[in-house]
Nucleic acid binder design. Structure first.
Length: 277
DNA sequence: ATACTCCCCTGAGAGC
DNA sequence: TGCTCTCAGGGGAGTA
């Protein structure tokens, strides 16, 4: 379940190896991975595209191919592996890119939730996902006023709103819990009830948590490990996520797990108190 | 416009 | 041991 820090780690590793390389061809073994354009067009248009740079936007990995972008969303379990043409195809490899020098970049995804898009740079800003992504967490436009504008008409629990990629992009289920814990805000608090102080805490701790996670190389949790070196250490620094029944490190209360918007949510009911008055 | 629900998919773990 | 059931989860689509 890669969030921004994990996506950045993966992108950096890919960049180290792939700058200047060329996609000779792509083979698609599970069509639903390709969300735009059609599978046939995708295969045709990727041919002989040179990789200029690899960056991220939200949780998307962005391959800069001169006049086009190849966008990849790993969702929960997407991974890349390097192989050669001689290696046998493994069960969960759904897209195989053949590079120059007979090398291959293979996309592996047990749950088949990942998505790829190949789009011209000209169209990209007006097309999903770019057209609907909010601010990166380091953007200087991320201010109390910005959040106020997006929060004031929302009655959803703040936990759900933090996962809304059209406001702040890159926060996922794990870091949302950590950010709310450090901000002493109940995940159940309706978004439009947040105070100015609450919003500023969210900005502060979003930056803090994501920056620390990036330094640690991301979080390795559940099945999300990759032999290409994404074995993040941030899980050692998690304070609430996955800690059901354990003692809160601040007040000694017991961490609870509840469901919010269908997502498992961990919090300390003692120090993340709902303040409705 | 916001806010619901359903769906995609598979493997791990629980329960019998 | 081996079967069946439930759950996890990012985000898009459809509906109220």
């Amino acid at each position: 379940m890669p969030e921004k820090p994990e996506v950045m780690t993966v992108a950096r590793k890919l960049k180290d190896h792939l700058i200047g390389r060329v996609f000779k061809q792509a083979e698609i073994f599970y069509d639903n991975i390709i969300s735009y354009p059609t599978v046939l067009e995708f295969k045709e248009q990727i041919k002989n595209k040179k990789i200029i740079d690899i960056t991220t936007r939200g949780k998307w990995i962005v391959f800069d191919l001169e006049n086009d972008y190849l966008l990849v969303h790993l969702r929960m379990e997407g991974k890349f592996f390097y192989r050669t043409e001689k290696d046998q195809k493994e069960k969960h490899e759904h897209v195989i890119f053949t590079l120059d020098h007979e090398e291959q970049l293979r996309y592996h995804d047990v749950r088949k939730f990942g998505k790829m898009i190949l789009i011209s740079k000209e169209k990209a800003p007006y097309h999903k996902p770019f057209s609907e992504l909010g601010l990166e967490f380091w953007d200087s436009k991320l201010t109390d006023l910005y959040l106020k504008k997006h929060y004031q008409k929302k009655s959803l629990p703040i936990k759900s709103t933090l996962l809304d990629q059209s406001i702040i992009t890159g926060i996922g289920n794990i870091y949302a819990d950590e950010i709310l814990f450090l901000s002493h805000i109940s995940p159940l608090l309706p978004t439009n009830k947040l105070t100015k102080e609450n919003r500023n805490d969210i900005i502060l701790y979003t930056k803090k948590v994501l920056n620390q996670a990036i330094e640690a190389g991301g979080t390795t949790i559940r099945s999300y490990t990759s032999e290409e070196g994404v074995h993040g250490l941030f899980q050692q620094q998690l304070k609430v996520h996955g800690k059901k029944g354990e003692k809160c490190s601040i007040c000694g209360g017991i961490i609870e797990k509840i469901q919010i918007g269908g997502r498992g949510t961990y919090y300390c009911p003692e120090c993340q108190n709902v303040k409705l008055k």
